[in-house]
Design a binder for these strands. Structure first.
Length: 487
DNA sequence: ATGTGC
């Protein structure tokens, strides 16, 4: 494929940032790539073939890759794709398979020294695992929660006991500190799902899921240049944070399955298509497009509530371990797989993010009230055994529709990792057997070998690219002390 | 990432 590159951001005065940006011209259009030389050089031809297919979707206005980009189904993970709402197409492939997948961070009143004892970390991991099911087969819990209310209204559909401060306006932090606590949808679309899907999804409320999903206990290290923002967010050095990475579980899967065939049918009728039969898209205002958007919103609602219930269970486990003095507040809940409308200077855009995190700068009007002055926290997970990051958007992010990376980004497939990496190497990366061991819930690391850090790019390089490109800055680094993984 | 079917 013929590829031309330039590296001038919007032709403006971003010269200091140009080492981390390239506009790559492909036959079907341009993809804007944010990455340093080494990460850019490591991007395979397949990543650009996928871009060339995605750029053939009618009326697309902008497409970009973050430095952690890697091949996915139909569309790469690390994609931002933008249309004007009026003439938009919506693509289930660009949203991706785990609709609403994202991060949540809670701040605790614990300090790193409270978790210095490896036995205590093990005890805590066990207590959390008891309340946050990490296996697929779980019994029905939360019998007081109505799933039809949850998928229709998000956090607003939960009984008050799960959102204790939601109804006292002066302290309504848990709702305002969530990217969106409820997506509005036409509930008629929900009647399309059979009973077995409702039952399975209800059983899965508050469960972690497999793959890269996790709960981690981390110690916060504030970036010197960000002390003021860190203070306003309530962070302190050595503070223990709880980071949760999970998504919409089987509910989102059912949405993809049902809508996928409807969208494929609409594509045949409309005569649309690309070289990749797995790249699905339909006009936003068509029947198939509308059905997908409404049901995608139901999966976003499920995902937000799922992370919220995982946090609720973790709070219970920590209270059991540390007593009633334990406190845990919400820092933020932020997705990286979704599509929705965003306003830009009076214009309405339809923005898809797949493995891309929105990071708004200070003062941007779309920030929630609690973060209007600082910009909202952008929550970026590292791979197992490596640090995660709390970041904040920079004004330069406007050039990329405020999208930054969503993590380290896979560098080799799950199968290739299992062939290449030895359990012993994974064990060393987790410092197993040492006093500073990162405690993992699994008795054997073998079951999660495909999640070893060797399967991922270097998160520090990814972060350096995002910062270097002027999209965001680091507020704090979060070092892992314990991890709970599903399978 | 996921449930389902081989």
């Amino acid at each position: 494929m013929l590829i031309n590159q330039t590296n001038q951001i919007n032709g403006s005065d971003h010269s200091a940032h140009e080492a981390y940006y390239r506009r790559v011209s492909l036959p079907a259009g341009d993809v804007h790539v944010y990455a340093g030389d080494e990460l850019f050089g490591a991007m395979g031809a397949k990543v650009f073939e996928m871009a060339n297919n995605n750029l053939q979707i009618p009326n697309i206005r902008y497409m970009s890759y973050t430095p952690d980009v890697h091949v996915g189904v139909g569309t790469c993970i690390g994609t931002t794709a933008v249309w004007e709402t009026e003439s938009a197409f919506v693509s289930p492939s660009i949203v991706g398979s785990d609709i609403g997948c994202g991060m949540r961070v809670h701040l605790t009143n614990l300090k790193a020294e409270n978790l210095r004892d490896v036995k205590l970390r093990r005890q805590l991991v066990k207590a959390i695992e008891k309340r946050v099911p990490t296996e697929n087969q779980t019994r029905g819990r939360f019998s007081d929660i109505r799933l039809e209310r949850v998928v229709a209204k998000g956090l607003h559909g939960l009984p008050g006991k799960y959102v204790p401060d939601a109804y006292t306006p002066r302290q309504a932090t848990s709702l305002t500190r969530v990217e969106s606590s409820g997506f509005l949808l036409d509930e008629d679309y929900l009647s399309r799902f059979p009973d077995r899907i409702w039952h399975r999804a209800h059983r899965q409320l508050g469960t972690l899921g497999g793959g890269n999903h996790f709960v981690e206990l981390q110690a916060i290290e504030i970036e010197e240049s960000s002390r003021e923002i860190a203070k306003q967010w309530g962070l302190f050095d050595g503070q223990i944070a709880v980071m949760i990475h999970s998504g919409s579980r089987a509910w989102g899967g059912a949405v993809n399955q049902y809508c996928g065939s409807e969208v494929a049918k609409a594509m045949r009728q409309g005569g649309w298509g690309t070289a990749d039969p797995k790249l699905l898209f339909a006009p936003l205002h068509s029947e198939a497009g509308k059905a997908y958007v409404h049901l995608m919103y139901s999966a976003l609602n499920f995902a937000v509530v799922n992370r919220h219930l995982i946090a609720y269970a973790i709070r219970e486990a920590c209270k059991e371990t540390f007593g009633a003095k334990f406190e845990m507040s919400t820092l933020y809940d932020l997705m990286h797989n979704y599509a929705w409308e965003e306003k830009r200077e009076g214009e309405s855009l339809f923005v898809h993010r797949k493995g891309a995190t929105r990071a708004l700068p200070p003062g941007h009007p779309d920030n929630p009230k609690a973060y209007a002055a600082t910009g909202h926290p952008a929550l970026i997970p590292g791979s197992m055994g490596t640090a995660s990051y709390l970041m904040v958007g920079a004004p330069g992010g406007a050039a990329n529709h405020y999208s930054i990376c969503h993590g380290a980004g896979r560098v080799r497939s799950r199968n290739a990792t299992k062939q290449l990496v030895k359990v012993e190497e994974f064990s060393q990366a987790m410092r197993i057997g040492r006093e500073d061991e990162i405690v993992v819930n699994h008795r054997s690391l073998e079951a999660i070998l495909d999640e070893s850090p060797q399967a991922y790019k270097d998160i520090d390089q990814i972060i350096a690219s995002v910062v270097g490109a002027g999209l965001a800055s680091v507020v704090a680094k979060c070092r892992p002390l314990a991890a709970i993984k599903g399978v």
